[in-house]
Write a protein that binds this DNA or RNA. Structure first.
Lengths: 487, 487
DNA sequence: GGGTATTTGTCCGTATGTATG
DNA sequence: TCATACATACGGACAAATACC
């Protein structure tokens, strides 16, 4: 850039939206920089720009050019400048005018394929392939029963209901949703809370990040080992210290918790991930006692997969047993409704709620108000409850078929299958890599337990088998492959 | 709790969704704890629970009770247990059975008003009142023209399009949206980027928080003074150091920036908030030069309100002039579409993108995929572009009327009115509190400049007047009130 | 609005433990 | 010790009502 010429140079952006097709074609970015006061008049710069773009095939035959007014406003120049340029282009057949419709690119001079842009796109991240074999990932859930029609109908109602829903909502989430959540949590999880105690946010990761920001910087977070690795990532990204607390058959060990310097622990009592154990009431009250012994101790209760339980009776949530305000309860719709519905919720104890309100004075909830309203209606009308029950039945049948298929294989033990959408397969005779390899030979991409472990070393090989995403039609085949892999 | 009796005690949560009405009624949480193996049989406990709830009016006449199967599954007990309990209740008139429909609360024994729950709700946060006078807040935007019908139609199409949209999407945001964004940014802001460089997130606050997490912990963030206060809140909550850099009539002062120890600065070049100045190309290139001089320096360009510009020519975005990969470009749909649509986007330079990918290995995008798809369609079909042009015209007319109304008032100066949805009113004769008070006398709740200032002290009184939210019907009245307040 | 799948009260056979004779 | 009755708890089959598409 020549200094001095700067003052005569005005950069102008090209303001224009293609009437594009949705699909796989290459994105074409048009961008002009015009100079006024230079030796080339502006109309000529415009003319040259479009002529070149058309000649290179970046604007293709039949494509609509921006209207004169759009260019005028977008570029901040006079309409006659655009008119002169378009006149030149039209005279030479680059474009043709359709009165009262617009200018369209002519079909005379286009090369066969558009010339590539000068700057190459950076290395593409490979897009996700649709999996061919059965999907035993613990992250997948069944969406085949999703109430599409109801969702679409409620959405339409909600959009047309009031312009108010386009304006700024409540930062903790809109009241109807929080009210519905408070009722649901009371009825299904024994969590007595008011809508005022609830914060709604865009997904569990966002919400746990938010909670960690509400806790003092000196917080030492205790995580389950093995456990949910994303929680560790979130904590470390926020600069919080992390300790790994071993589990036993009742969940996080309270004695180990006491030996550590942890002051906030994160647990999944209803169906521990990945071990699948359910924390019994005795351990729950021990953990609560630990939390109540120091003023800044908290328990983050991730009520993971509590919606799905097949054997035994429900155990009350930690939060429902918490009379000291030591439990931060979090839950999500990602697994009960769909992973792409990014709504999670937290019930905050008073001090944290106050800190949240002070911290996020100017913030809004991170969830679209339309989606909040649809969800609230879904719960209030009972559709969500019925859907949950149907899903539970579906998963229960799927689990039963899988367990039956695995039942008579010698040397294999299944555990953690009382609820949720995954269980563990343990083999004393074969190691995890051996198991994974023979699964891969059957076309099964399974997960080993070790990826969730920090210090813990399982005896023998362990696989974590999620069945939420296994399609019903593939189930027989999936069972067969599993049997062959594990035999 | 009696130790020893623990082993015979099984807690059971009441699993049940009301077929509720949507509305203002008090939330009623029901929750049972049953004991099996004690001396009272379970059906009797159930019976007593419901009888008490009905007698207290917590379950009201005509209300539906949970189905036998819902209770059976939810409580993990037998259906006949529920049946016995319901039979007793029905025999005594508490409830009545409607075959093949459900059990409903009878209307014989209900008290006039429900007995309050034992635990009182915590102090309620006052819900937002709808403002009566004209809304001159800078946070409000005009949603009267929002394409409701198109939004609802596209949403329906999207919901029915594919179950794939319920599954886990791309963590940076789905490709169609990023592709549409890349094209739009190229066309309107000269930002040449690939969809791979874009990260979509739930609102500007979330995204800036994310970006700050990608920057080293030792980062010192330079903010505009006066400026957007939420950015400071976000940075401080994440434990980042903050410096305030003064402005001049060209935006953030580069000389002051150099004097400071800042290595990442946050600027709003297109229409500075709140001063409303547009950073000229010369200052932009100076800021860019500053950023390129040290390896860890970055500029966060918040292209705030760049969509709306009324005078002069567009100035290219900083990002479009950035050939060293020093600019993090961020934008949002909150102001161009609606505040409740929580979608913002960032264009990350290579190293930060790599860090993002490493950090968020297991995360998903925080925006609902349905909403992403609708937005992509809105852009691809040109609806969004046309809507933006219509909005620009609307705001331009509104601005003109306001400026005309203020034009002949002596002692008043207007500035920062070249674009966006707000401008500044300065008075050399009256102080800010005086101005605010006389505005309040006219029923106008205006914002003073001082609330956005850290060290900066404006000469005379300054008001920040946002006109995005002033309703068209109220405009004449609003002008009149303003004139009276400022005279 | 109409066809289909699911939900729901009802009825009924079964199992287990306890009290009674 | 054994037979019987009863109380309590469990789950399958059926047809109507309802929800969902």
């Amino acid at each position: 850039m020549i200094i001095g010429a700067n003052w005569h140079c005005v950069y102008i952006q090209f303001y224009y939206f293609l009437r594009g097709q949705i699909g796989g074609e290459t994105v074409q970015n048009l961008s002009i920089t015009l100079e006024s006061g230079g030796k080339t008049p502006m109309y000529e710069q415009l003319y040259r720009y479009f002529a070149a773009e058309i000649a290179r095939g970046h604007i293709r035959p039949g494509e609509k050019l921006p209207s004169k007014r759009a260019l005028q406003e977008g570029l901040g120049i006079s309409r006659s400048t655009v008119e002169t340029a378009y006149g030149l282009l039209a005279a030479e057949g680059y474009i043709e005018a359709r009165p009262r419709s617009g200018y369209y690119c002519g079909d005379l001079v286009a090369p066969a394929s558009p010339e590539p842009r000068s700057r190459p796109a950076p290395e593409r991240e490979p897009e996700r392939q649709p999996p061919r074999g059965p999907d035993f990932s613990t992250a997948s859930v069944d969406v085949s029963q999703f109430p599409y029609a109801t969702w679409a109908k409620l959405n339409k109602e909600v959009v047309y209901s009031s312009p108010e829903l386009l304006r700024r909502g409540h930062r903790q989430g809109d009241l109807p949703l929080r009210r519905a959540l408070a009722r649901m949590l009371g009825e299904t999880r024994g969590v007595r809370c008011a809508p005022e105690d609830i914060v709604v946010g865009a997904g569990m990761e966002y919400l746990t990040g938010l909670i960690l920001q509400l806790l003092p910087e000196a917080t030492v977070l205790g995580l389950e080992d093995p456990g949910y690795t994303a929680m560790a990532d979130t904590a470390l990204a926020l600069g919080r210290q992390v300790r790994y607390i071993p589990l036993d058959e009742a969940g996080m060990r309270e004695d180990e918790l006491r030996k550590s310097d942890v002051n906030v622990c994160y647990v999944t009592p209803s169906h521990q991930f990945p071990m699948g154990v359910t924390m019994p009431a005795s351990r729950r009250s021990r953990i609560l006692r630990w939390a109540s012994e120091e003023p800044d101790r908290y328990v983050i209760e991730d009520d993971y997969d509590s919606e799905f339980r097949y054997v035994g009776r429900p155990i009350p949530s930690l939060k429902s047993m918490d009379d000291r305000g030591r439990v931060i309860y979090v839950g999500t719709f990602s697994r009960s409704l769909a992973p792409s519905i990014r709504v999670a919720y937290a019930v905050l104890p008073g001090p944290l709620l106050a800190k949240y309100r002070a911290l996020s004075a100017h913030r809004l909830s991170t969830v679209s108000r339309y989606e909040q309203a649809v969800l609230a209606l879904l719960m209030d009308t009972g559709v969500y409850g019925r859907y949950l029950r149907r899903l539970t039945g579906l998963y229960a049948r799927r689990r039963a078929r899988l367990l039956a298929a695995l039942g008579d294989i010698p040397g294999i033990e299944v555990s953690g299958d009382g609820g949720g959408m995954h269980f563990l397969i343990m083999s004393r005779e074969r190691t995890e890599p051996e198991l994974l390899e023979s699964a891969l030979e059957q076309g099964l991409d399974l997960a080993g337990l070790s990826r969730y472990c920090h210090r813990y070393e399982p005896e023998g090989g362990c696989l974590v088998l999620g069945y939420g995403g296994v399609e019903e039609a593939q189930l027989s085949d999936a069972c067969e492959r599993l049997r062959r892999a594990l035999k």
